[in-house]
Design a protein around this nucleic acid. Structure first.
Lengths: 120, 120
DNA sequence: ACAGATGCATCCGTAACGGATATAATAAGG
DNA sequence: CCTTATTATATCCGTTACGGATGCATCTGT
């Protein structure tokens, strides 16, 4: 078991970790696909090099946010190099808490002022 | 002048920097008041020690996000130790861009799914 | 078969953070 | 008045996250 779960709702996630979690909400992905998904969903504002990607994956594995999955249902001829990852319950919970944290930020008067005009 | 302005809309702000910017939107504050404002506005989820606070202030000064201000309109009997800071145009712009970035994140399907039920 | 994209991994420098510590002025209480 | 807690700023230093560079192997398209 991980030494501490600390899903205690505090401490914000880093942007990189948040985007990786978000890319895995819809389903399992392998590392390289995560990189592409993050680039796509951030409109290329987040350029994740391999160092950041695999370093983050390692950390998130240690934190218990993700686990490696063996996609048994995939047809043959899958690229053997690929390593797939999926969210754990803890990872999903962390994502939810972070989304709610960001939502609270956007509900502050200062943030609302910014979004007036472009947002309902 | 700062060597590079790089308000180029990319690269996300750190949570600490975002919260400090947010605390200064309403008006100038001194360091210790920033610390209290951040704690309040984050419901104590962000515990900023003095190292983080004054280190971040120094960085934000170097980035041109904030400047020290001399509050001439304040009455006498002000605590002489206090050093007040206010947003620059660049800092305000950085805050706006970050708020919009977060807003885009919350508009993704994965994030919307989380907010369904608690949010319209 | 060759080029280019895919895929994973590590190394290492840099930036951000965060606790500890130090110092001093101010405020509060007995 | 004396003491203590709070306010206020600042630095030091260890840890963590990031991010470019590099390496290498595999798969794809022509």
């Amino acid at each position: 078991m991980p030494k501490t779960s600390h899903l205690s709702s505090d401490e914000p996630l880093t942007p990189v970790v948040l985007h990786i979690l978000m890319s895995l909400v819809e389903g399992e992905l392998h590392g390289y696909a995560i990189m592409q998904a993050v680039a796509a969903q951030s409109s290329n504002t987040l350029k994740m090099g391999p160092g950041t990607l695999y370093g983050s994956i390692k950390r998130m594995l240690a934190m218990g946010y993700i686990i490696e999955s063996i996609p048994s249902l995939l047809p043959v001829r899958e690229d053997e190099r690929r390593r797939y990852y999926q969210l754990t319950d803890l990872g999903r919970k962390a994502f939810e808490l972070e989304v709610q944290r960001l939502d609270r930020i956007l509900k502050t008067p200062a943030a609302r002022l910014v979004l007036k005009g472009s947002n309902p």
